[in-house]
Design a protein around this nucleic acid. Structure first.
Lengths: 150, 150
DNA sequence: ATCAAATAGTTTGATATCAAAATAATACCG
DNA sequence: CGGTATTATTTTGATATCAAACTATTTGAT
């Protein structure tokens, strides 16, 4: 997938790197999805359940900033998880703007069953890289992804 | 963003690497989007126009495999680009299953104007990495993204 | 030639996703 | 206190995205 672009060598290298990066993530996630290790959950649903599973109950805005998704989006994802009985909402009685989201028993059971399978599938895919390469990749990604936080 | 997962060290490293990778891409694309260098186009619309711009007219299934998107999705994206007068469809008279998609003059003008801006924004973001780091990242991504192609 | 398999594109139904506007509740400032 | 600013969530409208079912066309095999 060459860049087909006449820019400065600096730009050509940067674009080429960007394309390789995004394509690697795209094809990796597509393969993981095909692998079917997510128990009928979408990626966002999985992300919400996994966050609650590992970090405990939290409000929607916290979930949205952890997953880098808009609050409107999280509202919908939680709606769908709630319809399936996997999470529950509870108004915070101290500050009634907040809604605390927590796993139901069914949600807890599902993510406890599915997470290890998905983690194993990810580890399998990533294992084409040696441990040293994985660390190097992590470092480079960390450098690329900075700037926000706070 | 630690993994919070009790698995083998091999799994923990792999998951940690995966999370860094996906988060880097997410925050990178979010920043590019905010930068507003895409001329009011969505990412997919930009991708289609850019593909036609650099590779010339092609049929929808070719576009979908280049962009790693489903054919149903491409149908919709092309619909929306067509409504805006940026691309045109033409049945192939040799084999009437194919539809050749090409840029209109307006589409050509738009992508010619917008692409360099977006490329510069990408180069700017990627430039937090030294050229050698960019090449290393590209190599690692290539190794991760293999398997498909055929 | 004929009919089955393959291929290109569309449609459908469900979910995702954002930005921006609207609601609701709390905090803060004078 | 009272009104303005801030924050959490929801809603709205547009677009994206997939899988699976469907249509149209061509290929291939007998």
């Amino acid at each position: 997938m060459p860049t087909h672009y006449q820019g400065s060598p600096r730009e050509v290298l940067a674009l080429d790197t960007f394309i390789k990066l995004t394509r690697a993530v795209d094809s990796l996630t597509a393969r993981l999805h095909q692998h079917g290790s997510m128990g009928g959950l979408t990626l966002s649903q999985f992300g919400v359940l996994e966050t609650l599973y590992h970090l405990g109950p939290m409000c929607q805005s916290q979930i949205s900033s952890k997953l880098l998704l808009s609050t409107g989006n999280i509202t919908l994802v939680i709606d769908n998880l709630e319809k399936r009985g996997l999470v529950q909402r509870q108004r915070d009685s101290q500050d009634r703007r907040y809604i605390t989201v927590s796993l139901t028993e069914a949600g807890q059971a599902l993510i406890a069953q599915v997470f290890p399978l998905h983690a194993a599938a990810i580890a399998e895919e990533i294992s084409v890289l040696e441990p040293g390469e994985q660390e190097a990749l992590g470092q480079l990604c960390r450098k690329l992804g900075r700037k926000e936080n706070s």
